[in-house]
Amino acid sequence: MRTVRSVLVDSPAGDLRIGSREVADPGHAEVRVTVEACGVCHTDSQFVNDQLPGIVFPVTPGHEIAGRIESVGPGVVNWQVGDRVAVGWSGGHCTHCNPCRRGDFVHCENAQVPGWAYPGGYAESIVVPANALARIPATLSAVEAAPLACAGVTVFNGLRRTGARPGDLVAVIGLGGLGHLAVQFAARMGFDTVVVARGQEKEKLAADLGSRHYIDSTREDVSAELLKLGGARVVLATAGNSDAMAAALDGLGPHGELIVIGIDAAPMKITPLQLILQSKTVHGHPSGVAMDTEDTLAFAAMTGIRPIVEEVPLEQASEAYRRMMDNQARFRIVLTTGA
């Protein structure tokens, strides 16, 4: 048992404060990780605001974690002290529910999400299940790896599970925390990449990240412009705006896929006929399990993909969280512990 600095939220929608939390020695099939960096994700608000079942306060958020193993519990194989590791949204799985028995770990009925099932990464040290660990390549820093463990794996895994092939037209809606990574992954995968965003001022950044085409949704008909380019095989909707997602549907070609990863409580206005005539599909995509995260990190290291981040010390977590939730941070904020 050891005592570490940790961010604590004492009650639903309460303030984030720096306090201390006791971190136990790792149990069976667990490891203790020294946290070097942890990304601030919009989804952290679901834990802070008590919007998911079973939240236990005080809450320590954080599910974009990068660090190194400091101790290993009994029953852990293939991991040792000093290994550099990342932990994302899929922070462990039970192995015994029906989805797990089918190997569908990302849909584990007892999903062990950091910050929900156990204290998260806004801390100096955490204990996690060994099956949550992904190896960090030597060429990625902890600050670079942390956002890739959630935002990165979500877009990478979402793209590679579609029917798109190199050379196909793939559009990314939004150029924020998810979108700026999605554009890089899409371009490096060999897709003819389109960015759909609001305003002309983002066009240069889109091109710098690898996009070959840009559609300003405030001035142009998104679907019409996509059809002029031949129709998209995939539209990856990273912006949390249901209207923007629906507006791109008619820009899909035959068998086109609208992949939804941006969150919006409003319904999408889509008619059955839009889907039927050209065999289009709309489906949601969760993040990915530990091996998916490891694949994401390896691909990013190999191809030079990096998140655009702002580093903030753990002591300023409250202000960093507020800015992220108020959309005052354009891409990613990463908390650092100085470890």
Score class of each variant (00 low, 15 high):
Q112R: 15
P313R: 09
L16Y: 10
R68N: 15
A117Y: 01
F105R: 12
P61F: 07
G75K: 13
R101K: 07
I263G: 08
G62H: 07
G121R: 05
D15G: 11
V106H: 12
T34D: 01
T154M: 12
I65H: 14
A138T: 13
R332L: 06
V153M: 14
G199R: 09
H255Q: 14
E220P: 00
A248H: 01
T162K: 10
G176W: 07
P114Q: 08
M245G: 02
G91D: 04
P12L: 11
D326L: 14
E315T: 04
Q274F: 08
S223R: 01
T336A: 02
P74S: 14
Q278S: 09
R2N: 13
A86D: 05
G251Q: 09
G176Q: 13
Y118N: 02
Q200L: 14
V222N: 02
R322Y: 08
A86R: 03
T3C: 11
A187N: 10
Q51G: 10
C150K: 10
T154Q: 14
N241S: 15
V87M: 08
K204T: 15
L314R: 00
A13M: 01
E310S: 13
E124L: 08
V309S: 06
C150V: 04
R219G: 10
S141W: 07
A145Q: 10
R2C: 04
A244Y: 03
T60C: 01
A138M: 08
T238H: 02
T218Q: 12
P114S: 04
H28Y: 14
P129Q: 07
R212A: 13
S217W: 01
S125W: 03
R160Y: 06
A164V: 04
P119F: 02
V77F: 10
Q112T: 03
G120L: 05
A197L: 11
M291N: 13
L205T: 11
R306C: 11
H180C: 11
A66F: 04
G288Y: 02
A187R: 04
I126Y: 09
E225V: 08
T34Y: 00
E22I: 03
V81C: 11
T60V: 09
D295V: 09
A66C: 03
